[in-house]
């Protein structure tokens, strides 16, 4: 048997293991059956979705918070980071890149994976997705060259070739 985790409260073997998100920090709590009941770990405390959503309400950390007058705003839909923290909802697809940093930190907490590996679109979606992706990678390549990160640049150049090929397959060579 692997070693047992003791109850945070009384030291008996714990049977209730919870992941809590408070102050934007992920903490694990362990309770025995009795202490869990005593600490009010009931149905309400066990809605992970609610926890995840309340984690969104808080800025990532004090030091990361934008200085006043220079708040992050989505250039496409005008949603501000503050509005997102209040309503937990993004305004448009471009919000994902506008709030990339904050969202990345959040997604790491509420989702087990970093990247999508499920259904890939076909038809109309694929055409647009590949095109937008290509634009993004081209932008990154320019940034890499400017910053003299040549290894990154080489990798990005290969990726662009690959995407251009994909796009020409989808659109029938008019990329």
């Amino acid at each position: 048997m692997s070693k047992e985790i003791p109850c945070d409260s009384c030291g008996q073997p714990a049977t209730v293991h919870l992941t809590k998100i408070t102050d934007n920090k992920v903490t694990k709590v362990h309770f025995c059956e009795k202490c869990a009941a005593k600490n009010g770990v009931g149905m309400d405390a066990l809605l992970p979705m609610a926890e995840a959503l309340s984690a969104m309400a808080e800025p990532v950390s004090e030091s990361d918070a934008e200085p006043p007058g220079k708040s992050v705003t989505c250039p496409r839909c005008g949603l501000t980071l503050g509005e997102f923290h209040k309503g937990h909802r993004l305004g448009c697809a471009a919000c994902y890149s506008a709030f990339g940093q904050e969202l990345g930190a959040l997604l790491r907490k509420i989702q087990p994976g970093r990247a999508h590996c499920g259904k890939k679109p076909s038809g109309a979606t694929l055409r647009i997705a590949t095109h937008e992706n290509l634009e993004d990678v081209r932008k990154n390549l320019r940034a890499a060259v400017e910053a003299e990160r040549y290894e990154d640049a080489a990798r990005l150049r290969d990726r662009i070739r690959q995407l251009e090929q994909e796009l020409s397959l989808i659109t029938g060579g008019e990329a």
Binding site: H116, G123, R127, I128, A129, E132
Partner: peptide
């Protein structure tokens, strides 16, 4: 998806 392009990134 055949006619509607969806918001999607790789």
């Amino acid at each position: 998806e055949r006619t509607l392009a969806m918001a999607y990134t790789g």
